[in-house]
Deep mutational scan, measured.
Amino acid sequence: MEVRTIKVFTTVDNINLHTQVVDMSMTYGQQFGPTYLDGADVTKIKPHNSHEGKTFYVLPNDDTLRVEAFEYYHTTDPSFLGRYMSALNHTKKWKYPQVNGLTSIKWADNNCYLATALLTLQQIELKFNPPALQDAYYRARAGEAANFCALILAYCNKTVGELGDVRETMSYLFQHANLDSCKRVLNVVCKTCGQQQTTLKGVEAVMYMGTLSYEQFKKGVQIPCTCGKQATKYLVQQESPFVMMSAPPAQYELKHGTFTCASEYTGNYQCGHYKHITSKETLYCIDGALLTKSSEYKGPITDVFYKENSYTTTIK
């Protein structure tokens, strides 16, 4: 009895394709271990004539594949690729409408935090270190965002349907971005203890939790000093293409032309909904596939993004 075979390709990165001759009487799992086709788990399936010449994702289970996976995804987590594939199996079914010149995501599976993050990423200057993220990001900007969303979920250790947080998501993504040249110098002034300067680099240099107003941050924000008295913390120097200011959701007025974009969060910790506000020729609110415009805006804002380049204080 002759062994019926077909020729397929296996890959971990969709760049390096490895030619395989597979036995049609055995499952993919018996031949390769966990195997995925377009995100779908085909591990328990036997090869079919229609699979001839198709590319299958496999887990990096030998040295060659491990090197290829690390170079593309910059992670050695053995569960990463499987999590990416199972997320992709959902995100490829989502709709990605162009809204006001940006790629958004039609609401499904509690994905409003991903839509808000995706919209924000198209408006701030950011370059990702893992080629996987950078490639998928370019495709997302062009309207094909399924891979990018699935990668975000995998890097953030999230599953489809789980509630997510924009600030946490951005923080994970910033860790995989090139923020080497970003720098922030802060000064804390206390009447009792004097003053202390701190220099922050990388992710810490672009994120701040405690106030939404970048102007206020430049002037000074009140913080408790270690001595128990009130101290003032203010920005001395900022070198970065953008800054992200966050605070627990509270009524906040966004003035046209003073910011790049913002995240609105309605609801409580267990259950809520994100919308995205962007400042173009007027203010726009993007909620999944829905767009509304207004000249002014007041609502429960939790993150505001500002364009920056270089700032030095005039406070002496």
Rank of each mutant, 00 (worst) to 15 (best):
M26W: 09
D77T: 07
G288M: 13
A247P: 06
A177Q: 08
C149D: 00
L121M: 09
V160K: 07
V185W: 01
H74C: 06
Y96G: 04
T292N: 07
P249N: 04
D109I: 02
E168W: 14
V67I: 13
Q30F: 04
L283G: 00
C225E: 07
E308C: 07
T91E: 01
C149G: 02
G210C: 00
G202D: 02
F56S: 04
N268E: 06
V58D: 07
G29C: 10
V185G: 01
A117H: 01
Q251C: 07
E68Q: 09
V58A: 04
T226Q: 14
Q216T: 07
D165W: 01
K46I: 13
G29P: 05
Q20C: 12
K233Q: 01
I223Y: 12
A247Y: 09
Y155A: 04
L37S: 12
P78R: 13
I152C: 09
V58T: 10
D180Q: 12
K218E: 02
P78H: 12
T35V: 13
E71L: 07
T103K: 03
H256N: 15
M245R: 00
V8M: 14
Q195L: 13
S79K: 13
Y252F: 09
T192E: 13
V67C: 15
V8Q: 06
G202F: 02
C271A: 10
G267I: 12
V8E: 11
R139V: 03
H273G: 00
V99Y: 12
S279R: 01
K201V: 11
L153M: 11
T314S: 15
Q20A: 10
S50F: 10
V42R: 07
W107N: 07
Y274I: 04
L179A: 01
L235V: 09
V160C: 06
G220P: 11
Q122H: 00
L200M: 09
L59T: 11
S181D: 14
T312Y: 11
T35K: 07
L114D: 01
A108Q: 09
H176D: 05
G299S: 04
A108H: 02
S246Q: 05
S104M: 00
S181A: 14
T5H: 10
K54A: 15
Y96P: 12
K93P: 06
I152G: 06
L119W: 02
L126G: 01
K191C: 07
R139S: 12
A115Q: 12
M244S: 00
A140M: 12
D165M: 11
P97E: 14
S50N: 12
T19S: 11
